[in-house]
């Protein structure tokens, strides 16, 4: 039994639902904040995820960082070196999807050359009438960035724990892979 620890960075434009997704995940779907309250700093949420059929767990340190441009620079200092990335946009906002490339660039400067498993999340899929970003476009861009694509609705509790569960599993797989590689090293 192993308990892994991963620093999971949550980024994206303001009001796309980063905090809603984080809190829904953290509270096992019991806490959806109906009133918007802008995150101005960095919120840390810790959640342990059991990895099926392994007895292992991954403790996610979810770093929910403010999306507002003027606050990013100050908050970046608290990002540290991320283990995992969750990049969120609003399916009803083309603009928030357009910002994703800039977010990726910013996150990369913190990764110190490490391979950081990541997901792209199109949130608010309940707003189907107002959708501005087609699934295929988001999917294609995600793939070009090496991200796994998810669509969620924190409000309707739709698949909103899938992205972070998938990241926890990816981190666990990475650990096993690295452990095996180290086991096969020849002594120096």
């Amino acid at each position: 039994m192993v308990r892994l620890r991963a620093r999971c960075l949550m980024v994206g434009d303001p009001a796309v639902g980063k905090s809603a997704l984080s809190q829904m995940f953290h509270s096992d779907g019991t806490l959806f904040q109906k009133n918007y309250s802008m995150t101005t700093g960095v919120e840390l949420l810790i959640k342990s995820v059991n990895i099926p059929e392994s007895g292992d767990s991954v403790e996610l340190y979810i770093i929910d960082s403010a999306g507002k441009e003027s606050l990013v620079e100050a908050n970046e200092k608290m990002w540290g070196v991320p283990s995992l990335l969750c990049l969120v946009f609003d399916l009803a906002s083309e603009r928030s999807f357009g910002s994703c490339a800039r977010w990726m660039e910013r996150v990369r400067t913190h990764c110190k050359g490490l391979q950081v498993p990541g997901v792209l999340v199109g949130n608010k899929c309940d707003l189907s009438a107002r959708r501005e970003v087609p699934t295929s476009v988001a999917q294609e861009w995600a793939q070009s960035q090496g991200l796994e694509y998810h669509e969620t609705s924190a409000k309707e509790m739709e698949k909103c724990d899938a992205p972070l569960l998938s990241l926890a599993r990816a981190f666990h797989a990475l650990y096993q892979e690295r452990r095996e590689a180290i086991q096969n090293l020849s002594p120096g």
Binding site: R3, F171, R179, G188
Partner: peptide, 22 residues
């Protein structure tokens, strides 16, 4: 538990302690 800290001081370079993230 498969790679405990004691592996660092058992004199054997084939066994190891492994960090588990962060």
């Amino acid at each position: 538990e498969n790679h405990p800290p004691e592996n660092m001081i058992d004199g054997n370079a084939n066994t190891f302690w492994m960090s588990t993230g962060m």
